[in-house]
Design a protein around this nucleic acid. Structure first.
Length: 427
RNA sequence: GGAGAGAUGGCCGAGCUGGCUGAAGGCGCUCGCCUGCUAAGCGAGUGUGGGGUGAAAGCUCCACCGAGGGUUCGAAUCCCUCUCUCUCCGCCA
């Protein structure tokens, strides 16, 4: 959420951002409702002041046995007026809030301008794309023939877009999760956390998934709860409503969770393989930072995510999302895209964003500066470190051998307890 | 699922026969004093959000005692609904 004052004072800037992102909002009525809200508030406060004073006076008169009826009658009227005005005030506040909560974040100055993903800027490419002496196979057929995943059975258990792993496949997911958690906790200084996988409406609203993107979520029937689409939601909400100790900043968490996404509107896209599933595993990095260091923290976070790809010897590129491709809550986002040789494309495997105070304002996460009065909103950041299913897909494709087996990179071998994946016996 | 207890400031904890209580007391924290050092001690200050005014410091007003409603001239205190926490019983991984 943006600050109301900021929006009112920068209507044209906000309008511009909206059109850059291809969105609309009723900024005119936002301005008029806010003006009305302030007028009424002023009036209410004056009346309340009067009521407080007179009520105090009535108390004293009563003690001295004086007749208070005139005052009581007057105050009865004043209270009625206040009640009526409060009704209008609440109405105005709701209107303002409804518009405000639907406004996306303002992109940072360093974000490239552009209308869609075609105008994203490539920052760098790292690692060497493998040169096979044969036609590389897509990960789904590799995985199926190795017997390490089984999409047919998964669709019978649940439906389309659910994973079912066996043997080395299941082990590879688990190994990657542990590998990633270990690096981020022991080398990068993140604190491990294991949050709830189901959250309430407030938490979803705080991080920006709601109210606009409810169709992307799985909702629990009979409860106002949702399956998390990313650990960002429960982990960012750990500190909702808190005033953090300045000395603790930046607070850095790493969490493994499964993620659940309805993938509404992506019918027919990436129907095969592990790329787009309703359920997938992810290791997520989340930071709470001082505003003045948040962009340095974003670079570090990106670097922390990149480390995983480097250790796994996977080729990738980093892109900076342009204004038109930026997510709703983000002020700046880097995507890391891993090389998928069978499809001859880079695919997103991590998304690292700085939300500045956008989420913190919604979730009311603040800190106090030493020697300064008042509080200040923190900046929140997060990034995948990494999406596990897509890492499995990339490993299969990049490390496949002519005989259909897959080599395990050295760094992961202690976790896999093997140096290659061979065909599983089918059950 | 049944029965009961509770939710107050950064923390602990009074108040809850309605009226100088934004809230006692303690702890913590900040500044000052004292002390050879540490500990202790002494003094002062210390919630959040919003509005008005002011260059600023400040002054001033309004709201907030889990959330939302109600009663009343007036609610932390009374009533209703909800949420959460704890204890006991039952059930269960």
């Amino acid at each position: 959420m943006l600050e109301i004052k900021f929006v009112i004072q920068n209507l044209s800037l906000v309008q511009e951002v909206l059109s850059l992102r291809g969105e609309t909002a009723d900024l005119k009525s936002l301005a008029s409702c806010d003006a009305k809200r302030r007028d009424i508030l002023l009036e209410i406060e004056a009346l309340r002041h009067r009521r407080n004073k007179v009520s105090e006076h009535i108390a004293i008169m009563k003690k001295e046995g004086e007749d208070t009826e005139n005052f009581v009658n007057e105050m009865r009227k004043v209270s009625g007026q206040i009640k009526n005005l409060e009704k209008i005030l609440t109405e105005m506040e709701e209107k303002v809030k409804n518009i405000l909560i639907g406004l996306p974040n303002i992109p940072h100055a360093s974000v490239p301008a552009g209308k869609d993903s075609s105008e994203n800027k490539t920052i760098k490419q790292v690692g060497k794309c493998p040169d096979f002496g044969f036609e590389p196979k897509p990960h789904w057929s590799l995985g199926e023939s190795l017997g390490i995943f089984d999409f047919d059975r998964a669709s019978r258990i649940t439906g389309a877009r659910f994973p079912l792993y066996f043997g080395a496949g299941a082990r590879l997911e688990r190994a990657l999760i542990n590998f990633m958690l270990d690096i981020h906790t022991t080398e990068h200084g993140y604190k491990e956390t294991l949050p709830p996988f189901i959250v309430n409406r407030q938490s979803m609203t705080n991080t920006g998934q709601l109210p606009k993107f409810e169709e992307d979520l799985f909702k629990l029937e009979g409860w106002d709860y949702f399956l998390i689409p990313t650990a960002e939601v429960p982990v960012t909400n750990i500190h909702q409503g808190e005033i953090l100790n300045e000395d603790l900043l930046p607070i850095m968490y790493v969490a493994y969770t499964p993620c659940f996404r309805s993938e509404a509107g992506s019918y027919g896209k990436d129907t095969r393989g592990l790329i787009r599933q309703h359920q997938f595993n992810k290791v997520e990095l989340v930071k709470f930072a001082r505003p003045e260091t948040s962009y340095d923290e974003l670079e570090k976070l990106l670097n922390d995510a990149e480390t995983i790809l480097k250790r796994l010897e996977l080729p990738y590129q980093v892109i900076s999302l342009c204004t038109g491709d930026l997510g709703f809550s983000a002020a700046k986002t880097y995507d890391i895209e891993v090389w998928m040789p069978a499809q001859d494309v880079y695919r997103e495997i991590s998304s690292c964003s700085n939300f500045e105070s956008f989420q913190a304002r919604r979730a009311n996460i603040r800190f106090r500066r030493k020697g300064k009065k008042g509080t200040e909103l923190v900046h929140t950041l997060n990034g995948s470190g990494l999406a596990v299913g897509r890492t499995v897909a990339a490993m299969l494709e990049n490390f496949q051998q002519p005989d259909g087996s897959v080599i395990i990179p050295e760094a992961l071998q202690p976790y896999m307890k093997t140096s290659s994946i061979q065909k599983e016996k089918k059950t």
